[in-house]
């Protein structure tokens, strides 16, 4: 009789020992894919393009924001064209593989973009990307 009473009915349980393993796996994934949000940028609508490519080396990318009013921002600082040249020259000295990503509003004037390109040439930054959204068009 006593032996039977020792066998307590085991409570139903969900095994939780492995949830931590699963969670840590996800953490590692997020840690590897994360680039910390360093800037807020300006409010823009990117133009669409079908030939949009991914940039693989994300750590080499520096953003230059241009909104439709013609404001230019790098790292959340509003700059003029001379400022763009000096800031980008500094970034280029730190990282010669720098890629400048021009994030310009689709309704901005091309002249402003042209000025930024000239400022980048002065800074010696020659690898450029025009930020676009992928867009499929007919044909």
């Amino acid at each position: 009789m006593k032996k039977i009473s020792l066998k307590r009915p085991s409570e139903p349980e969900i095994p939780t020992a492995s949830t931590a393993d699963i969670a840590f796996l996800l953490i590692i994934f997020f840690m590897l894919t994360t680039v910390f949000r360093t800037e807020r940028g300006l409010k823009i609508n990117l133009p669409g393009a079908e030939a949009t490519e991914r940039i693989l080396k994300r750590r080499n990318v520096a953003h230059i924001w241009l909104d439709r009013a013609g404001k230019i921002s790098i790292d959340d600082n509003l700059l003029d064209l001379k400022g763009v040249t000096s800031v980008m020259a500094g970034k280029f000295a730190d990282n010669p593989d720098l890629i400048a990503e021009v994030r310009a509003d689709r309704d901005s004037e091309y002249g402003k973009v042209n000025d930024i390109l000239e400022a980048l040439k002065d800074a010696g930054v020659l690898k450029i990307t025009f930020a676009t959204e992928f867009e499929r068009r007919g044909g």
């Binding site: 940039i55 021009v102 990307t129 025009f130």
Partner: peptide
């Protein structure tokens, strides 16, 4: 985290 937002049209000046 930001998921690879970096995309666009590449060119070299």
């Amino acid at each position: 985290s930001i998921f690879s937002r970096e995309k666009g049209l590449k060119t070299v000046l």
